[in-house]
């Protein structure tokens, strides 16, 4: 099973790099959807030793949420804001990719700090960390509100993956609650983006800096 699991991890890592290197919002939304499906659905199935009904159910729920609901919400926000690409991010794309590599190295270091449970791929924790750091980086380095929401989703994906990697026994209730929160969060952010767009006629969060000091 391990080679399969590892290749899934590698796939996730590649999506991370794609997100870091892409300027087109549409592409980003699709990439994050794929990442969500892989991390939320495929990964648990392939990495778990015993597939339970509970796991199956959660997986389907997560796949639906991240593969369908989030992309739809985001696309709508994007359309309403009539922005299709990130023009001038705070950090350029080449630099972002290099940063991605650094994140991966840091993730490996952090992964080594945490003892991995038996039967879990050695790549699992680093991958999760990579996702979290990529998400945070997106929030920090991009200008558009939509990209920041994408970043937030990547962070959530990463956390989910981390949960899978280090703890099998998180009660499903909590897991679902977390998902629900993520959903609500994205939903709320979507509304906020809508508001911002309406009020300011742009959704460049980099220009939201009236309040200071």
């Amino acid at each position: 099973m391990m080679p399969l699991v590892d290749s899934v991890h590698v796939l996730i890592l590649v999506t991370c790099l794609l997100l870091l290197g892409s300027s087109r919002l549409g592409a980003c939304i699709r990439t994050v959807a794929i990442q969500g499906i892989v991390a939320g659905g495929v990964l648990p199935w392939v990495s778990s030793l015993h597939i339970s009904m509970q796991l199956l159910f959660t997986g389907v729920f997560v796949m639906a949420l991240k593969g369908i609901v989030f992309p739809v919400l985001l696309s709508r926000a994007m359309r309403e804001a009539s922005a299709s690409r990130e023009m001038s991010p705070f950090v350029g794309y080449g630099t972002s990719l290099m940063a991605g590599v650094l994140f991966f190295l840091a993730s490996l270091w952090l992964g080594a700090k945490l003892p991995t449970p038996d039967g879990v791929s050695g790549l699992a924790v680093p991958t999760a960390c990579m996702m979290v750091s990529t998400g945070l980086f997106l929030i920090i380095a991009r200008r558009l509100a939509v990209t920041q929401v994408i970043g937030y989703i990547v962070v959530e994906n990463g956390i989910y993956a981390l949960g899978l990697a280090v703890a099998h026994d998180i009660p499903v209730l909590v897991e679902l609650g977390a998902m629900l929160d993520a959903f609500v969060a994205v939903f709320v952010m979507g509304i906020a983006i809508f508001h911002i767009n309406r009020e300011f006629d742009h959704m460049d969060s980099g220009r939201l800096n009236v309040l200071k000091g």
Partner: peptide, 17 residues
């Protein structure tokens, strides 16, 4: 208001993260 919206957006994103 624009300012309150900005505040809300920052609050939301920072606290969510």
């Amino acid at each position: 208001s624009p300012a309150s919206l900005e505040a809300m957006w920052k609050y939301l994103l920072m606290c969510s993260v």
